[in-house]
Amino acid sequence: MVALVATLGVLAGCGSDSSTGSSSTTRAPAAQASGTITVFAAASLKEAFTEAAAAFERANPEADVTLNFGASSALARQIGEGAPADVFASADTANMQKVVDAGGIVGSPTTFATNSLEIIVAPGNPKGITGLADLGRSGVVYVTCGPEVPIGTYAAQVFDNAGVAAPTPSSFEADVKAVVTKVTSGEADAGIVYGSDVKAAGTRAEGVAIAADVNVVATYPLGVTTEAANPEGAAAWAAFVTGSEGQAILATYGFGPA
């Protein structure tokens, strides 16, 4: 059973029914993980990790993966305040480094995925947005996240790379999924999100590509926390996500290899 702990104040907009169809050949690994494994993961990992947790639990029936999604910055702060996480998966290295610097991670984190950025718009692209320059146009409601949230910093880098002045947003949302929700619900016209988010939104949104030469590669590090209540389970989860099955699941959700 996958317990989804919704982060306070965050409108987790999507009723993501983790597609369970892919019945993979479950070979029992040598060591079975057991107990509750609490994974704090970047909001953009929501769909991929939800499916990965289901697959992990099929392979390890004794284990129960509890997922807590939020802005990597919020999760890093919660871990710093002593939140009971066994694993932390961040959408950027900066927030992971905060936890590492505070002595919160065992060893050094492992990069397990990458992601690129896209502009998310309503289906059919009613505002005719073709690129970054259109986001600042009057009449376009653009939302983003604050600079402490990974996507906020990545978006700023993209505007910088393109030599386009970053538009004044209508709102700084709490995490990238909140940006997605504002666009899919029609309150906002556009935002910059991860390619995986556009994919996860399915027919409720459309993506506008950002040219490769100005795009940013988001790297996702993962680490087992020093205060982990279930270090064996945490290590098993880390091995699963970096292993072939976990990587395959991430790939179906639009993440790139590490």
């Binding site: 104040g9 409108l11 939302v143 947003p169 209508s170 709102s171 700084f172 949302e173 709490a174 504002k182």
Partner: peptide, 9 residues
């Protein structure tokens, strides 16, 4: 407020 009106300084 944060759900309906968003968050802009």
């Amino acid at each position: 407020t944060i759900t309906f009106a968003g968050n802009l300084p």
